[in-house]
Amino acid sequence: MADGRFFGDGLTYLDPSDLKGKLIAIEGTDGVGRSTHIEMLQEWLEVQGYGVITTGWTRSNLMSKTIEVAKAGNILDHWSLSLLYATDFADRLEHQIIPALRSGFIVLADRYIYTAFARDFVRSGNRTWIRDVFGFALIPDLVCYMRIDVETLALRVIETTGMNYWESGMDLRLGADLYESFKKYQSLLIEEFDKMAEEFRFNVVDARKSPEEIQEELRGHILPVLPGHKRAGASEQVPA
């Protein structure tokens, strides 16, 4: 609680003072291109000699199967759904993220607690509980938010993976069909992300730009956070 590195009521049995690495979260709604950019960032950082691990939403050893099963068949209330995400996150935080930070790695997180905040808020209309639940989360050193408008997003998702049930928020019955539902659901998420971008001072990156431009912007935000980046002679690229 007293420790400023935790979002709220922290892990009381854990001392975060010796975390040497940097935690960088890439946020943004479904299909915005986060994973592609994270791959490129990892490559870029490793070339510079930084140790990098990536961690992704619902990818914990403990929970990934459970969440799949839950999503495949069971109608979930928003509490269970959010708590499943929280358990997955806690497992990764304690078994992947914190050990890596302790060893001085750069941790690139594909989505972070803000995704859970947005999804729960859209379903519950209440921000307090979900933020309390994730009180044990570490505050990242940097949050980059890949922002897109829903029209562009819809086209992009149709062109690539197609729209799926959960990304369309079909459990909320917002629209007559998948397309309508997708647009309404993603608009609500984007609206909430935009609010959080101000509240938590995300670094907003326009995800409608070309991949090269987006990558360039992301690197610009990350560079100042890196340990010893000035030594690396990157002064020209340091943004305002």
Binding site: M1, G8, D9, L11, T12, W129, D132, V133, G135, F136
Partner: peptide, 11 residues
């Protein structure tokens, strides 16, 4: 775990 946190969890 924190006493406050677990109470909030079950709110």
């Amino acid at each position: 775990v924190s006493r406050d946190w677990v109470r909030k969890l079950y709110h």
